[in-house]
Amino acid sequence: MKFSSLLLILIVTLSGVANAECRPDRVDLKNGQAQVRFNIELARTPQERSRGLMFRENLPARSGMLFVFDPPQRVAFWMKNTLIPLDMIFTDRTGLVTHVHEGAIPGDPTPIEGGDSVFAVLEVNAGLSSRYGIRPGTWVRHEIFSLGPAIWPC
């Protein structure tokens, strides 16, 4: 009886530690191939989303920008005035990756469609989606997904 009580306390304590790892300035992604963390900036307002990563000459390794669209909606991105190649990772409200666009071309004004019910888009340096096997079915963890029916909660 004492062992099961200690085990329960340990599980509750460790789950609190795991949840404490969530921070507004980073996201975690996991799938059957890998788990990776990115330091991020949030773009929540229309002005922040409109500016995005435009005019930046570089993006540090394992960094990105997380665009939030609440409520979920149809979104399209373009690379006008963006100087660095990017991968765009589109998610639904639960943090499930629904679409990945790899290698968006700097300066290209062609719209990049993400789907009809996009809640968030993570932009990272081009090539990282492939390197970490990020594809539809990958899970993203960040506190913004805790407001909905999160599968991998903070």
Score class of each variant (00 low, 15 high):
P71L: 04
G52S: 02
L66Q: 05
V68G: 04
P85T: 02
A34C: 08
V100Q: 06
L29W: 00
R62D: 14
P24G: 04
F69R: 06
I89D: 05
T94R: 15
I40A: 00
D92I: 00
T45S: 15
R23D: 07
L83S: 07
T82A: 06
G32R: 08
I11D: 08
D70V: 05
M54E: 14
F38C: 04
D87K: 10
I11H: 08
V97A: 07
C22L: 01
F67D: 03
R37A: 13
M88D: 06
E21Q: 13
W78E: 10
D28M: 08
L6T: 04
F90S: 09
H99F: 12
N58D: 15
L42G: 01
T13K: 00
V36Q: 14
Q47N: 05
N58P: 01
N58G: 09
M88Q: 08
A104S: 14
N39H: 11
I40L: 10
V17F: 15
G52T: 00
V68W: 03
Q33M: 10
L66A: 11
S15Q: 14
L83C: 04
F55D: 15
L42I: 10
L66F: 08
D28E: 14
T45N: 09
P71A: 04
E48Y: 07
L7Y: 10
Q73C: 00
G64W: 14
N19R: 14
R49N: 05
N31E: 08
N19I: 10
V12R: 02
L53I: 05
I9M: 13
R49Y: 11
L29N: 01
N81Q: 11
L86K: 02
N31Y: 06
I105K: 15
R93W: 01
